[in-house]
């Protein structure tokens, strides 16, 4: 039996004569969203074993490039689609629907052995530490706050390829990609965990899941007095939380009932526990309702 999932080919021809809802759903994109999609795909398999779901990890930008070339049915993204990417899709005649699937609180952390950051940090102070002007100048903690000790600021943070870096620099420094460069950068968050937990006067940031898995050796910092958790991320009171999306190609939703069925499952409350297991916050019920509305809109009169 040969199953094709060719780029640009919408008709996944299956020579097997199984139920209508069988075929391959091709998903690609963000590594941050991957654990959610993997969990949903795994559970969906027990509901509908005839549908094959394959998930790739080429990053938010790489995934959307493939999506707008018609290679994939669904694209995972840890940020909203950019205007130039949306234009790429429009030029290729690909209409899509944006669906919010979760929220990721960005954890600002120091080592558990740190003794002066217990009261947390402010966005203002974060900007002082991370803005490009700080490079080579702001190197001691007492330069940021006179009450803090005269010890070196040791920074361990994601490298420039990371979507987390894009989000943080946009939020804190006011412009995506704008940052000081004299810090230890890594694309591997587990490396950052080791670096941050290794000193006393360290600071860094990454997705909340990496904090919860290493809570014994890290200290989570409140930002402007708010600690990230499901409650503060969900209601928006924690300001450093980013939305996680999936983008679905409308033609795939309409023409392939198994893609439609998969998204419908993804949007149900049944998947809330999968999202928290992956280390993220599930969308609020209003956000869910909004996403379902967008989904039904995309289907128009084509609902099966």
């Amino acid at each position: 039996m040969f199953l094709t999932s060719c780029g640009g080919n919408d008709n996944n021809v299956s020579t097997s004569s199984s139920a209508a809802s069988s075929g391959t759903i091709t998903i690609d994109g963000s590594s941050t969203v991957f654990p959610i999609t993997e969990a949903v795909a795994e559970e969906y398999r027990s509901i509908n074993p005839n549908t094959r779901v394959v998930v790739g990890v080429s990053g938010t930008g790489g995934g959307l490039k493939k999506f707008c070339a018609g290679d994939t049915d669904i694209s995972n993204a840890s940020r909203p689609i950019k205007p130039e990417e949306a234009k790429l899709c429009a030029d290729a005649g690909i209409a899509f629907t944006e669906i919010l699937v979760g929220l990721d609180g960005l954890a600002i952390v120091t080592s558990s052995s740190n003794d002066f950051l217990s009261d947390g940090i402010t966005r203002e102070q974060l900007k002082m530490i991370f803005e490009p002007e700080a490079e080579g100048k702001i190197t001691r903690w007492n330069q940021v706050n006179a009450a803090w000790p005269d010890s070196e600021i040791e920074i361990f943070a994601p490298d420039t390829d990371s979507g987390t870096f894009d989000f943080f620099t946009d939020e804190i420094n006011g412009h995506e990609g704008l940052s000081r460069a004299d810090y230890t950068a890594s694309s591997d968050d587990n490396v950052l965990v080791i670096g941050i937990s290794g000193g006393k006067s360290t600071i860094g940031y990454f997705g909340y899941a990496y904090y919860t898995e290493n809570a014994d050796r890290l200290k989570l910092l409140a930002v402007d007095g708010v600690l990230p958790n499901d409650g503060t991320v969900s209601d928006g009171s924690y300001s450093l939380a980013r939305p996680l999306f999936i983008y679905a190609r409308n033609s795939a939703l309409i023409e392939k009932d198994y893609v439609q069925d998969f998204i419908r499952y993804h949007l149900s409350d049944d998947t809330d526990y999968l999202i928290s297991e992956a280390g993220y916050t599930a969308p609020s019920s209003e956000q869910r309702a909004e996403a379902r509305h967008a989904f039904e809109d995309a289907l128009g009169g084509h609902s099966h």
């Binding site: 039996m1 999932s5 795994e42 094959r52 779901v53």
Partner: peptide, 13 residues
């Protein structure tokens, strides 16, 4: 990265 089947033909993912 996530594939929950083994290939059954050369055109499989």
């Amino acid at each position: 990265t996530f594939v929950a089947f083994t290939p059954s033909g050369v055109l499989d993912s």
